[in-house]
Each structure stands twice: as structure tokens, then as C-alpha cells.
Design a protein around this nucleic acid. Structure first.
Lengths: 150, 150
DNA sequence: TATTGTTATACTCTATAACTATA
DNA sequence: TATAGTTATAGAGTATAACAATA
């Protein structure tokens, strides 16, 4: 008679984790971000670069501090990103009209062209990432996610 | 007459980003994970440790490879986590019944007690993190998130 | 030959302390 | 004294290559 051996797991049961909002939100975010990274590679932007560029697009003159607050980025970590975007001539720093300490960020014409294309790509990507959702479901999903973090 | 100065941004307009599923899923995930980290601190576990422990709980004998596949962790990065959990005497490695290369992971009695409490804490935390959602909305949110990543 | 678990290592991301110029 | 921007640096997280043991 053989010794009793520990059981082997055939298929992994993840049902407990799948009942948690945090687990599901993380998995969904990772899936969308991976697709985002693939499609944005042609623009040389990661998710965070796109977020920064998008906020500069819709808020010309925004300061580094405002970007940090809006995106939960630590100021020292934003410096290299801004430098890189400036070296690529996508954004320019201009003096702030009322605060000599601050610098306003603006898109260059090149940056405007790039973001025009990138935001269109982002819209297409959104529809692909949520292709199993109806338009109404997609709207509901965003509304419920905002109820969690706002 | 003064020179024309660039405009200053009063309040940051984030409406474009708020229309993207990826942005919202990321923000929601970060919010829940931060609360998770606070509440799980008493158990000395981060989100990933809890996920590993939970899968071992519901899949006794699960292997490292199965954990890596289920949680999208690279095998080298799991080693230190498993070692730490074993040193805390929360899990034990037992020989796999049919594969001499593999090792099955199991909870110790201490690990079982800890996870009994930790999973109860996770349930409470879930309700707190989604306190602005009705039970039906919470269920809908999970269903829609799974439609994105599954 | 392929797979499990592992070591070593590099790379990225994120966080903290401290400085300067200006408010 | 407080804030915007910056530098340097440390720590955490993640990824790749290569190895021994076993299939």
C-alpha cells in the first residue's frame, strides 16, 4: 500500500479572487494598458506620456505641479519625462504669466499633429479593448469605476 | 501695452482622460489597492502576497508554475515571495505526487488561521472600497471588468 | 528536447531628501 | 515661511539569461 501523497491541482480555481473588485480592476487595467502600449509604440509614448501630453493638449499652459497633482506623479519623476518630450520637440516650456517660479507647458505644432493622431488611435484602441461590451455597457463601466475612485 | 503672455490654467480639465476605460480602470485599481495595502498591513501582506496565499488556500498543492500562470508573475520573482511566506511558516513545500521536478504548496495551520482572518478583512474592505455602489452595481462592475480582460 | 525551480542580474518605476529661485 | 522646479539617490517592482534536476 503506497503512502498517502499530497494532491495535485489540475485546473487552478481563481473564483475567490474573481469575486474581488480590486483583482478585477487590476486585471482589466493591465489588459488595456498592454494594448495601449502596443498601439502607442508608433508614437513613442507609454500610458503616462500620453496622459501628460493629453493634459497639456487640453490645458495649454498647465504647470508641472498641476500635472503631478492630476496624475499622482511625484515631481522628481516628471522632470525626465518633460525633458524627453521637450527634446523631441513635442512640448515647449514658457514662462508662467503670473508666477515666476512656475513654467507653463504647451504643445509645439509637431506635438499637436502627433496628439491629433494619438488621440484618434486611443479612441480606436478603446473600442477594441472593450469590444465585448455594448456602448451602453462601456458607459456604465466608466461610471461605476468613477464611483470607486472619485 | 504689455506683451501677450501665455494663459495660466485655473482648474485642470481631465475630461478627455476620464472618457477612457484604461484611465478609469487604472485609477480605480490604484484606489482599491491602496486601501488593500492599509488593511492588509496587519497581516504583513501586499496585494500579490494575498493573491498567492488565496490561491494556495483554494488550491492546496498548487505549484509555483501554476501560480505564475494564474497571476502573471515571472517565476524568478515568485521565489523570494514563497521563501518569505515559508520562513513565516504560513506555507510549506511538499513533493509533487506525480512530478519530481515540481513542488506543491500548502498552507500550514498558522497560514490557515491567518487567511481565514485575511479573507474576512478583504470582504469588508471590498464593501468599503465600493461603498458608493449598490450590491447590484458592484456585481455589474465585476461582470463588465471581466468582459474586458477575459 | 522540454519543463520546474532557481540564481544572478539588469532594467524600470516609484519615493525621499535636499537644493535654488521665487512668492 | 512656503511653493515650483530640479538633482541625486535609494528602494521596490519587473524582466531576461542561464543553470541543475527531472520529465
Amino acid at each position: 500500500m503506497p503512502d498517502k501523497l499530497p494532491p495535485a491541482v489540475e485546473t487552478v480555481d481563481t473564483s475567490y479572487l474573481e469575486g474581488l473588485v480590486g483583482y478585477n480592476a487590476s486585471r482589466a487595467a493591465i489588459t488595456v494598458i498592454e494594448l495601449f502600449l502596443q498601439r502607442m509604440a508608433v508614437y513613442g509614448m507609454r500610458q503616462v506620456d500620453f496622459s501628460v501630453m493629453s493634459l497639456v493638449t487640453h490645458n495649454p499652459g498647465i504647470t508641472s505641479r498641476q500635472l503631478c497633482a492630476a496624475l499622482s506623479i511625484q515631481p522628481p519623476n516628471l522632470v525626465a519625462m518633460i525633458n524627453a518630450l521637450e527634446q523631441r520637440e513635442l512640448i515647449v516650456r514658457k514662462p508662467h504669466p503670473r508666477d515666476g517660479r512656475a513654467v507653463g507647458l504647451h504643445l509645439t505644432p509637431t506635438g499637436q499633429k502627433l496628439m491629433h493622431d494619438a488621440e484618434r488611435t486611443a479612441q480606436e484602441l478603446e473600442l477594441d479593448a472593450t469590444r465585448r461590451l455594448t456602448a451602453a455597457e462601456r458607459k456604465t463601466l466608466i461610471r461605476l469605476l468613477q464611483k470607486v475612485y472619485l
